[in-house]
Design a protein around this nucleic acid. Structure first.
Lengths: 199, 199, 199, 199
DNA sequence: TATGAATGAGGCTTCATTCAT
DNA sequence: AATGAATGAAGCCTCATTCAT
């Protein structure tokens, strides 16, 4: 009986994890299809084989699902960004690898938004934190005299803005590599540096 | 009698224009207070002295109100950006005045977003078009050899990203002037240029 | 001024009659297109170049329009039925001409009903009254011994039922003449009489 | 445990069936009281102890309820008509029993219609199909030479018309038996046959 | 009389959530 | 834990009607 119960219990836990994942997948799908604002809990449930009551065993609301998805994104992106930076040896490599990791992720997770729908930014604190870590490293570089003193809040904002906007270009079909080269060139030398950039 | 009819007609049209403006103002308010996703048509109506049916004489949905607000924003921003550019004589002045116009507008229209709410971007095609015009001018500059050849799609994206993200900093209290200097420096010379920038 | 007023007044009266007719025509159209139950006053107004307030100068409700249309129908049908009967010299001619007049009218006023809509019967007291007059004449015939004594309520019902149902066949494409022959034969001799009826 | 589950399931399904029946009963009532056109979904719900949302678990609209009621009528009437015909051995019995079954049903389901309301016909394809089956049997009789050749579409229409109109008389208080005798006499011998019919 | 915007009641429907099974 | 029907609040929207012009 114990053995049986144990088997049953682990089967259940498996099911629990599966159900949670099922709901998250449904959320990803409907958020992409309809846009956050238009999605209802029922829409998420409908994209699922589960019963409506089951949803509430896992999430409290669509916002809750959304935040979980964002954390999931962050969980994927941040290690990649960190790895990219740690593998770099020059300022250029540092920026280039970071942008490249981010744009590759954007290309992977690209999905169609409904035309006319209001666009959302998947920029949770968690995702932005990836850039925050970049900032910390830049702070370090500034302290070491490798980079000039500057307003790091502004720099984070500028990096974030360029990263997210170029990510849209990448989602629209641009190459992650050329987008990364462009962004890196801008931050290393501004517009004049672009002339030295192969397209 | 003509005068009377005319007065009557204009009084009516005045009321209509006022009602439309009343609804737009209510929309501005509740979008700022609650965030787009959470707002309902009823919320907008409730922020109004009008009857519910009246709303539908002017707009079809909250999306409709939102788009009208965006167009209104565009109508305000674009002339300012254009004027800023036309008054500039150097590349630096060109960028600086454009950013400054945009950040000043951001500072004016700053309003509190609900913490935790999903952020929206007020970047309609119309607003972005302001940057599109900038792009045209840059294209001209490229043609004249003042600027290197580059991917203007990427450049527009980068300018847009920096402008919108720094605008958030400005809404959070940063100075439009210093944000403009920062953004200008980045695009003129990249990170190295920041050392030459007084904070 | 008098002359002018008079002209103005008659122009107005013309307009009044025209407006009423415009509304009735719109009612005919939308009742045929959508079915009575689905039609709203607004639908009728929308099928009109008139303003909504104007409707209420002529009718109180869609029911009011509907009744006016029925009266109009009755006004058309009854004289035709009466003329048909008065021109008949035998029982057979009497029935045949009556049915024929009715079916011809049905053929003329045939219009498509929306599939799936609940069907309505245009059998107002006024329309039925056309058959009531037939009944009176039959009563007379009974009194004169030309027809056997019977329940005239039942007979009116039977004639009405046959007339309206065969009218549907006629609206669906059947010939008024053959439908009239059929109905006449039934009432003169029942099923056996049909063998003597040329198709 | 199985038994428990089974009981649970059937208890649920019982409730579901009861709710559906509750709504249909409410529909029957309000359609009879107000006429189809005037009824709203809310009227049906109000005639029920159920919550408004519950209605939509069972039906999509008032039309949906109406069609279900018609099917229910058909389900009741058709077996009766079929049994009536199958028990008949002569043409007269055949017609008489069919009409009688129909009129008895009409008498049972008689209910007050609102005066002045537009009348509806409960003649769905399903109900008419009862007469269609009659037609098939008549076709057979025609093939066997028992009845003369004729337009069976017209005959179905005539039978339907007489049946539905006399049913109204029956709902108004006439005897099903005498109505059946009348209708049978008409179809067997036309008006002349009525003299042989005891009232 | 004609107009057409304003009104707010109220119909339609979906929603989030509960809870008995 | 899973189910899915029930709930009723509440959003959406149209409606009939009024009334100032």
């Amino acid at each position: 009986m114990d053995a049986h119960a144990k088997t049953a219990r682990s089967r259940r836990e498996l099911t629990k994890a599966q159900n949670r994942e099922t709901i998250l997948a449904a959320g990803r799908q409907v958020f992409a299809e309809m846009g956050f604002a238009a999605v209802t809990v029922r829409d998420i449930i409908r994209a699922t084989p589960l019963a409506s009551g089951t949803f509430y065993n896992y999430f409290k609301s669509k916002e809750d699902v959304y935040l979980a998805l964002r954390d999931e994104v962050a969980l994927t992106v941040r290690p990649r960004l960190r790895a990219a930076r740690q593998g770099a040896e020059t300022a250029e490599g540092f920026l280039f690898e970071s942008f490249l990791a981010f744009f590759r992720f954007a290309a992977e997770s690209s999905s169609e938004q409904p035309t006319g729908a209001v666009r959302f930014r998947m920029d949770s604190p968690e995702v932005v934190a990836g850039f925050g870590e970049l900032r910390e490293d830049i702070d370090t570089a500034v302290a070491q005299g490798l980079l000039p003193a500057m307003d790091t809040g502004f720099l984070t904002a500028a990096l974030t803005g360029v990263a997210f906007e170029l990510a849209e270009q990448v989602k629209g079909g641009a190459e992650p590599e050329s987008a990364s080269r462009f962004a890196t060139a801008i931050f290393l030398g501004g517009l004049p540096a672009l002339s030295r950039q192969p397209d």
